[in-house]
């Protein structure tokens, strides 16, 4: 077991060092949700009236509503960023170094995943602290309760990134991920508007949102921030994680995925 742990810690250390070295990445990861919070939400507050829905017990401002969604956004971007760095690792060869370590592949990939999640949780807490500075605060215990939720949602979004990285072989293809994964997942979710609001405009849009795993990740975070447990969301996020991670393992299995994708 010590071998497993040693490798996990080394992988986490490498990822966090790499992250801290890229100050611009850290900054971007924070500025993005802050812009949404400060600029977008301010403008939207006027346009959107929110009634009381669980887990909220009073009327809330729009800034308060989108806070969990922006945490989800941080993790979504982080998951895709990790995926990007995996593709980079594949092109640069460091992926080989990892995969030839004398450990089961699922553990190596899970370690990589956990390292990414740790970074995303760090980002989320920094963001929540900055939001608090702007006066958008949460119940104090919520900051603690959200930790397991962020872990699970981070794992799910990271596993999605891992899956994508196992199907994409070149960095150039990555712009597509932005268009076809990040944007739809984010906009077709409960991150920016509650689902009942979505249903007012279109029922099938609402249905798409309701099956989007990102919606459930956001709801899991939202409920946890108010010290509530959303079992349905947990189930969805957990299932999505299992599916994404399972497929990613298949993609990285030396006997399967790799050999099928070849050039020319």
């Amino acid at each position: 077991m010590s071998l497993y742990l040693t490798a996990l810690l080394a992988i986490m250390r490498r990822e966090s060092l790499r992250f801290l070295q890229q100050r611009s990445r850290f900054l971007a990861a924070l500025v993005r949700p802050l812009i949404w919070l400060v600029v977008f939400a301010a403008g939207f507050r006027a346009a959107l009236g929110l009634s009381i829905i669980p887990p909220y017990e009073t009327y809330i401002t729009y800034e308060v509503y989108i806070l969990p969604g922006l945490c989800g956004m941080i993790q979504l971007f982080n998951g895709m960023q990790s995926s990007l760095s995996l593709v980079y690792d594949q092109e640069m060869g460091s992926m080989r170094l990892l995969l030839t370590a004398p450990l089961p592949r699922w553990w190596l990939l899970l370690s990589k995943l956990l390292a990414g999640v740790a970074v995303s949780i760090l980002q989320c807490y920094t963001f929540l602290a900055l939001a608090a500075l702007f006066g958008i605060t949460l119940p104090p215990l919520g900051y603690l309760f959200v930790l397991p939720a962020l872990l699970i949602s981070g794992l799910m979004l990271g596993a999605l990134g891992l899956l994508i990285s196992s199907t994409i072989r070149q960095l150039e293809n990555f712009a597509g991920v932005m268009n076809f994964v990040i944007f739809p997942m984010f906009f077709l979710s409960s991150a920016l508007y509650p689902l009942w609001k979505m249903a007012e405009s279109s029922d099938w849009l609402r249905d798409i949102c309701a099956v989007n795993p990102f919606t459930h990740a956001v709801e899991l975070i939202r409920f946890a921030l108010y010290q509530q447990f959303n079992g349905m969301a947990l189930l969805w996020v957990g299932l999505s994680f299992a599916v994404f991670f399972g497929l990613a393992l298949l993609g990285y299995d030396p006997a399967h995925g790799m050999t099928r994708r070849r050039r020319g």
């Binding site: 810690l9 080394a10 992988i11 250390r13 490498r14 060092l17 370590a101």
Partner: peptide, 11 residues
């Protein structure tokens, strides 16, 4: 760091 990372991957 590079050396340590590799060493750790090998336990």
């Amino acid at each position: 760091m590079n050396m340590r990372y590799f060493a750790a991957l090998h336990g």
